[in-house]
Simulated scan of single mutants.
Amino acid sequence: MAAPSSRQVFRLFCQFGAFILTRFGFWNCFTMLMLFAERADVKRKPDIQIPYLYFDMGASVLCASFMSFGVKRRWFALGAAMQLGISTYASYIGEQVHYSDWLKVRMYSRALAVIGGFLVLASGAGEVYRQKHRTKSLQSTGQVFIGVYLICMVYSLQHSKEDRMAYLNHVPGGEITLMLMGLLFGTLALSFLSGCYVRLASQVLAVVLPLVLLFIDGNLGYWHKTCHVEFWNQLKLMGHNVGIFGAVLILATDA
């Protein structure tokens, strides 16, 4: 039996990335429901007022369902980007729940990157049998959003004590390694923002992100007990990073 070619392997990874990103809405809604149930026990409010929350979740599940079945994927990916953008903006201006500044950077930058991932999907990237040309403007905008997310990661590594300690506790080499990681994320951010070597930058990020997800985000004891991040909020943030990983896989493998 002949070994699969590199093109077939890339196509498989691209499909896997699209699979992850199109199912993001289901996990996001589930973790939101669990988070708000967790808050109900201590009489804390959800991020969005209740009547609008149901419409928001309904729109998210609707877009995720149609994207998962491949029905008008470009249109519903664009709808998912709009839904997440409106939801994030509503939670930001609503100020029903107080978050620390460093946690706001983590939450909103990841949401922005997932929106960028949906825009990449809406451009036509990740389609196995592409019948229409990709919309370059949508893909470029999505790449810029991912680049902004990486800039926020560099900012957090420099100015957030909580983020710095999360890396220092698991990364050998101390401050020097932390500086090198900041340099790496900054270089990748410039690539996404400028549109140069995006595929190479995506391939590097596709290797780095699972490590960050496993060793940094996966340290639930640190985030929940030491930094007082709500348990389901941390799982929600992990889901955001998984969605970003799906978008990066598409950019890394779709020719």
Rank of each mutant, 00 (worst) to 15 (best):
A255M: 07
R39E: 09
K45C: 08
I244D: 00
D217N: 14
T226L: 06
L237D: 01
R110H: 14
K72L: 09
Y92W: 11
G17S: 11
L214I: 07
L150A: 06
G58R: 01
S191T: 11
D41A: 12
A206I: 02
F10A: 15
S109D: 08
F10T: 05
V229H: 02
P46V: 12
V204Y: 10
A201T: 06
L35I: 04
D56V: 02
M82D: 08
Q234G: 02
M179Y: 14
L35M: 13
L235E: 04
R39Y: 08
A77D: 12
S109M: 11
R74C: 06
L235Y: 04
L53C: 08
R106S: 08
F76Q: 03
V207R: 10
Q143Y: 00
V212Q: 05
I216K: 05
A3T: 11
L78M: 14
L209Y: 10
C29D: 13
L251Q: 03
A206S: 15
F245P: 00
A64I: 01
M82N: 08
L235G: 00
R134Y: 04
L200F: 13
L21K: 05
S194W: 06
K236F: 07
G17W: 04
I115C: 09
I48C: 06
P46E: 13
V120D: 07
A3D: 13
G243E: 00
